[in-house]
């Protein structure tokens, strides 16, 4: 077995890290606040992450689910927590890059949050039923151009990240599709398979079961799990950035603690069990430290602002 040996290594590493750090951190349990219910892909990855992170940081780590309000409750709780590194956010980008463009008031300010490390990605793909008449993404675009607004697709919600992402693709393809919202994928899957809807823009982790045919992945480079599926960029309709995320802390957290968290995060990310979970759920990505993560977030925010303007979305 590799796991116990890894655990042993990790323990030694954490003891070493503990003696190196000048002040005592962590001094009480660390909360990883996840903006989804238990069982969500991000939640599952957070739990796998926490299993390793606790030995890397040398303390207790608890995953706390605070779902609701598009993750803004969770982000608000972290932004307003004591900035001592014991309350962290583990989740995607939307709360920082999309919600500020949609809403006048948020329970937090974007500047109150410091990104620590980017550890996962939630790519979206265009999925059809296996015997769909649309064999390629070009077929769909063609069908959309012939009958603008008549070809329907299912997605998680109007104004959600996949909606904005796919809308930009449709704008570039100069077509229009009929967006139909599904609060959860368990109702979208039967509709696609029974042919009641033409296609779905679905998150990874939701279309392996039941099996569907992927026409394109909304991504720049091909996804290692779906090497034979073309990307939207290859097909000429770049979809800049989807959902990605990782660990965040309150911005006022002392610099040494942020550095300690980032180092522990990088080691955790490389652990075999964390990598396996990312891979199994299709959430694998390349690691980014705090600087790279912040750059990605800034670029994504500009992109989302443009998409929101094009779609003319605004919360009353």
């Amino acid at each position: 077995m590799i796991a116990p040996r890894l655990l042993g290594l990790a323990l030694t590493a954490s003891v070493w890290a503990g003696t190196a750090a000048a002040e005592k951190f962590p001094s009480r349990p660390i909360q990883l606040i996840v903006p989804f219910t238990a069982g969500n892909v991000v939640d599952i990855n957070a739990r796998a992450f926490a299993e390793v992170f606790r030995s890397e940081i040398g303390g207790t780590v608890v995953v706390v689910n605070r779902d609701g309000a598009a993750g803004m409750i969770a982000m608000g709780a972290v932004a307003n927590a004591a900035p001592d590194g014991h309350t962290l956010f583990f989740g995607p980008n939307g709360q920082l890059t999309l919600q500020p463009h949609l809403r006048k008031s948020l329970p937090y300010k974007v500047e109150q949050i410091a990104p620590i490390c980017l550890t996962f990605e939630s790519p979206f793909a265009i999925a059809v039923r296996p015997d769909s008449p649309h064999k390629t993404f070009a077929d769909l675009v063609e069908a959309g151009r012939k009958n603008p607004g008549k070809v329907s697709y299912g997605l998680s919600g109007i104004g959600s990240v996949p909606h904005l992402l796919f809308h930009m693709v449709a704008v570039r393809a100069k077509t229009e599709f009929n967006a139909v919202a599904y609060k959860n994928y368990s109702l979208l899957a039967p509709d696609i398979l029974e042919g009641r809807i033409d296609f779905g823009v679905m998150a990874f982790g939701s279309f392996q079961s039941p099996p569907m045919k992927l026409l394109a992945v909304l991504r720049e480079k091909r996804h290692p799990r779906y090497k034979d599926v073309p990307t939207s960029t290859e097909l000429g309709f770049p979809a800049e950035s989807g959902a990605f995320g990782g660990l965040y802390a309150p911005a006022a957290t002392p610099k040494p603690i942020l550095a300690q968290l980032e180092a522990a995060c990088e080691r955790t990310f490389k652990a075999a069990s964390v990598q396996k979970m990312l891979d199994d759920t299709g959430a694998g990505t390349e690691y980014e430290g705090s600087a790279g993560f912040a750059r990605r977030l800034a670029a994504d925010s500009a992109n989302k602002a443009e998409a929101v303007r094009l779609l003319d979305l605004k919360v009353q």
Partner: peptide
């Protein structure tokens, strides 16, 4: 069918996929 009908089934699906 592989369709999780409720949140508990979504967790079961996760257990299987893992």
């Amino acid at each position: 069918l592989g369709i999780p009908a409720n949140p508990v089934m979504a967790l079961m699906l996760a257990i299987l996929l893992i």
